[in-house]
Protein backbone atom coordinates (compact mmCIF):
# COMPACT_ATOMS: atom_id res chain seq x y z
CA UNK A 1 0.00 0.00 0.00
CA UNK A 2 1.28 3.48 -0.72
CA UNK A 3 0.61 6.68 1.19
CA UNK A 4 -2.05 7.86 -1.25
CA UNK A 5 -4.03 4.65 -0.86
CA UNK A 6 -3.66 4.76 2.91
CA UNK A 7 -4.94 8.32 2.97
CA UNK A 8 -7.92 7.37 0.79
CA UNK A 9 -8.79 4.49 3.10
CA UNK A 10 -9.21 6.81 6.09
CA UNK A 11 -10.67 9.87 4.31
CA UNK A 12 -7.38 11.60 4.86
CA UNK A 13 -6.32 15.05 3.76
CA UNK A 14 -2.69 16.05 3.19
CA UNK A 15 -1.99 19.14 5.29
CA UNK A 16 1.43 20.13 3.98
CA UNK A 17 3.29 20.41 0.71
CA UNK A 18 5.22 17.17 0.77
CA UNK A 19 3.38 14.78 -1.51
CA UNK A 20 5.40 11.60 -1.81
CA UNK A 21 2.19 9.70 -2.45
CA UNK A 22 4.01 6.79 -4.10
CA UNK A 23 5.88 6.05 -0.88
CA UNK A 24 5.28 2.46 0.18
CA UNK A 25 4.00 1.90 3.68
CA UNK A 26 5.95 -0.63 5.70
CA UNK A 27 3.59 -0.58 8.68
CA UNK A 28 2.07 1.63 11.33
CA UNK A 29 2.20 2.53 14.99
CA UNK A 30 -0.30 4.41 17.16
CA UNK A 31 0.40 6.33 20.36
CA UNK A 32 -0.15 9.65 22.08
CA UNK A 33 2.87 9.40 24.30
CA UNK A 34 5.93 10.52 22.37
CA UNK A 35 8.22 8.60 24.70
CA UNK A 36 6.33 5.42 23.83
CA UNK A 37 6.90 6.21 20.19
CA UNK A 38 10.60 6.77 20.75
CA UNK A 39 10.84 3.61 22.81
CA UNK A 40 9.14 1.09 20.58
CA UNK A 41 8.55 2.30 17.04
CA UNK A 42 10.56 0.69 14.25
CA UNK A 43 11.91 2.82 11.40
CA UNK A 44 9.74 3.78 8.38
CA UNK A 45 6.37 3.48 10.13
CA UNK A 46 3.30 5.67 9.73
CA UNK A 47 2.66 7.32 13.10
CA UNK A 48 -1.02 7.58 14.07
CA UNK A 49 -1.57 10.05 16.90
CA UNK A 50 -3.98 12.48 18.51
CA UNK A 51 -1.24 14.93 19.40
CA UNK A 52 -0.61 17.78 17.01
CA UNK A 53 2.10 19.95 18.52
CA UNK A 54 5.50 20.38 16.81
CA UNK A 55 6.96 17.71 19.11
CA UNK A 56 5.13 15.11 17.04
CA UNK A 57 7.19 16.13 14.02
CA UNK A 58 10.42 16.20 16.03
CA UNK A 59 9.66 12.75 17.35
CA UNK A 60 8.95 11.57 13.81
CA UNK A 61 12.33 12.88 12.64
CA UNK A 62 14.17 11.09 15.44
CA UNK A 63 12.31 7.83 14.93
CA UNK A 64 12.52 7.84 11.09
CA UNK A 65 8.74 7.99 10.68
CA UNK A 66 7.46 7.96 7.06
CA UNK A 67 4.28 9.97 7.62
CA UNK A 68 2.07 11.28 10.44
CA UNK A 69 -1.70 10.70 10.63
CA UNK A 70 -3.58 13.08 12.94
CA UNK A 71 -6.87 11.56 14.13
CA UNK A 72 -10.25 13.08 15.07
CA UNK A 73 -10.04 15.81 12.43
CA UNK A 74 -7.56 17.82 14.43
CA UNK A 75 -6.14 20.94 12.84
CA UNK A 76 -2.54 21.30 14.02
CA UNK A 77 -1.01 24.71 14.75
CA UNK A 78 0.81 26.34 11.82
CA UNK A 79 4.20 25.74 13.45
CA UNK A 80 3.58 21.99 13.28
CA UNK A 81 2.76 22.21 9.57
CA UNK A 82 5.79 24.43 8.90
CA UNK A 83 8.10 22.06 10.73
CA UNK A 84 6.68 19.07 8.85
CA UNK A 85 7.39 20.91 5.58
CA UNK A 86 10.91 21.71 6.68
CA UNK A 87 11.59 18.11 7.62
CA UNK A 88 9.70 16.79 4.55
CA UNK A 89 7.35 14.57 6.55
CA UNK A 90 3.83 14.21 5.11
CA UNK A 91 1.08 15.22 7.53
CA UNK A 92 -2.36 13.64 7.01
CA UNK A 93 -5.53 14.63 8.87
CA UNK A 94 -8.43 12.17 9.16
CA UNK A 95 -11.90 12.76 10.63
CA UNK A 96 -11.86 9.22 12.08
CA UNK A 97 -10.90 8.33 15.63
CA UNK A 98 -7.72 6.48 16.49
CA UNK A 99 -9.46 3.13 17.08
CA UNK A 100 -11.22 3.30 13.73
CA UNK A 101 -8.08 4.34 11.85
CA UNK A 102 -6.11 1.47 13.37
CA UNK A 103 -8.94 -0.97 12.64
CA UNK A 104 -9.27 0.04 9.00
CA UNK A 105 -5.54 -0.11 8.36
CA UNK A 106 -5.17 -3.43 10.19
CA UNK A 107 -7.96 -5.00 8.17
CA UNK A 108 -6.36 -3.65 4.99
CA UNK A 109 -3.21 -5.57 5.86
CA UNK A 110 -0.98 -2.84 7.31
CA UNK A 111 1.30 -4.47 9.84
CA UNK A 112 2.33 -3.23 13.26
CA UNK A 113 5.75 -1.66 13.55
CA UNK A 114 5.81 -1.72 17.33
CA UNK A 115 8.80 -3.55 18.71
CA UNK A 116 7.95 -6.34 21.07
CA UNK A 117 9.48 -5.42 24.40
CA UNK A 118 11.05 -8.15 26.44
CA UNK A 119 9.14 -8.62 29.72
CA UNK A 120 12.38 -8.02 31.67
CA UNK A 121 12.67 -4.59 30.16
CA UNK A 122 9.19 -3.50 31.08
CA UNK A 123 8.33 -3.39 34.74
CA UNK A 124 5.70 -0.73 34.43
CA UNK A 125 2.23 -1.83 35.43
Amino acid sequence: MNLNELSGLINGKFLNNTKPSMKEIKGAFAADLMSDVLATIQPHAVLITGLCNPQVVRTAVMADVTAIVLVRGKQPPQETIDLADEEAIPLISTPLGMFEVCGKLYVAGVSSLEQVIHPDDCDCG
Binding site: M34, S35, D36, T49
Partner: peptide
Protein backbone atom coordinates in the same frame (compact mmCIF):
# COMPACT_ATOMS: atom_id res chain seq x y z
CA UNK B 1 15.12 5.42 36.50
CA UNK B 2 11.97 3.40 37.13
CA UNK B 3 9.84 3.15 33.99
CA UNK B 4 6.67 5.17 34.45
CA UNK B 5 7.95 7.31 37.34
CA UNK B 6 7.42 10.97 36.54
CA UNK B 7 7.36 14.35 38.25
CA UNK B 8 6.08 16.16 35.15
CA UNK B 9 3.04 18.42 35.29
CA UNK B 10 -0.25 17.89 33.48
CA UNK B 11 0.74 20.59 30.95
CA UNK B 12 3.83 18.62 29.98
CA UNK B 13 1.90 15.35 29.76
CA UNK B 14 -0.42 17.05 27.28
CA UNK B 15 2.62 17.57 25.05
CA UNK B 16 3.09 13.83 24.95
CA UNK B 17 5.99 13.82 27.38
CA UNK B 18 6.44 13.29 31.08
CA UNK B 19 5.34 9.66 30.94
CA UNK B 20 8.34 8.63 32.98
CA UNK B 21 10.02 6.89 30.07
CA UNK B 22 12.66 9.43 29.08
CA UNK B 23 15.65 8.16 31.04
CA UNK B 24 14.62 4.57 30.37
CA UNK B 25 14.53 5.30 26.65
CA UNK B 26 17.94 6.92 26.76
CA UNK B 27 19.42 3.94 28.54
CA UNK B 28 17.91 1.58 26.00
Amino acid sequence: MQPGYSTASEEIRELGFGAGMGLVNIKR
